[in-house]
Simulated assay, not measured.
Amino acid sequence: MARKPAQTPEGGPLRRGWTTGACATAATAAAYTALLTGRFPDPVTIALPRGETPAFALALEGLGPSWARAGIIKDAGDDPDVTHGALVVSEVRRGEAGSGVRFKAGPGVGMVTLPGLPIPPGEPAINPVPRRMMSEVVARIAAEHGDAGDLVIEISIPDGDKLAQKTWNPRLGILGGLSVLGTTGVVVPFSCAAWIHSIHRGIDVARALGLGHVAGCTGSTSEAAVVARYGLSENALLDMGDFAGGLLKYLRAHPIPRLTIGGGFAKLTKLAQGFLDLHSGRSEVDFDWLGDRLAEAGADAGLVEQARRANTAKQVLDLAGAAGIKLADLVARRAQATAQAVVEGSGVAIEILVFDRQGGLVGAADGW
């Protein structure tokens, strides 16, 4: 039995949308095809990481002797995404022979200026999965037309600099605009009531099936890692996302013996701090708190101060790792204590697993 899609409070399904990364990939496919053939495919179809093949209508076309430009209006579905309705533009130009695919930030796309993010400083804020998606679509089209595929891809989002002020980008040191994001290409609609409702229904199904072990994960990477670790069935996977509280409070009244919570270091740091809502708009990583944990672990004053002044949780984790301090284990234990307190008396035993961005286990607290 597959998990049901999220629903509106009225019971209708929430419409999913497409990430900026998916839009940028589709625009790149259209522009590169036009550069090679003189014709823009409209609509343009791409393949997403999970196998979906959506088609995108073009909102903008432009073609010159050595460049082509295409734009797509982002549809975020029923998600209240600040970039819903934004124009995502890809302009492709010939690169030097043998240079492969290179990326540039056009107007409205930010530049990374501080360490600790998936993209290093000095690079456009185009995340790894969208880069891979665009590189793969270029390779496919190049092979179809016998081209070398040496391209400079410039992504721009008009008014992206203004939209970025409504995000955490400035605080993260991403300056000048938005990030091009997405790990699946699909925007899952954000609705607190509907999402928490779907978590509750997942618990009900797991109990009805007599499952003794379920998992709630913050995202697809941690979920895949937990599945690989335990071989859990689809019915054992609860769409926790940011709603740790919605999961734990329902489990307290409707217990299942074993719960694994899996997630990235930043999200689980928030749980360790005592937050039950892990969304970036409603809770923040406290770098002073991380500094205190390092001090407790015996870190020297210089390292503690570096942690307090860090830009991202990942940066603190990297600093701790370089010093031989297992900070993720410490965070996992604190997160476990937060979670276990919520379900106290229910008989639910909780394990915390902390994963890196590649799905590697970096910290754990075994509550069994």
Rank of each mutant, 00 (worst) to 15 (best):
A228R: 12
E96Y: 08
P130Q: 05
V180N: 03
K326C: 09
L172M: 12
P257R: 15
G21A: 05
P170M: 05
D150M: 11
E351V: 12
L330V: 14
E123N: 14
N311D: 11
D239N: 13
G62C: 05
L60P: 03
A143Q: 12
T184P: 00
D329Y: 06
Q165G: 11
A86N: 04
P124E: 01
G85I: 14
S66G: 13
A253L: 15
I73R: 15
E296C: 07
A272M: 11
P49H: 06
L232S: 01
L181P: 03
L268T: 00
V343W: 02
R207T: 05
I73W: 10
T113A: 12
V285T: 09
A139C: 11
L259T: 02
D204K: 13
E296G: 08
E52P: 01
A310H: 05
F103K: 03
V88D: 12
E144D: 14
T167S: 09
S156M: 03
A301H: 11
Q340H: 14
G100C: 08
G298H: 11
K314W: 14
A341G: 13
T183G: 10
L327K: 03
K270H: 08
G98Q: 08
A225R: 02
A299K: 05
G281R: 15
G100Y: 09
T19P: 01
V109S: 07
P120Y: 03
I199S: 00
D329V: 07
L14I: 11
P124Y: 01
T338Y: 01
A266K: 02
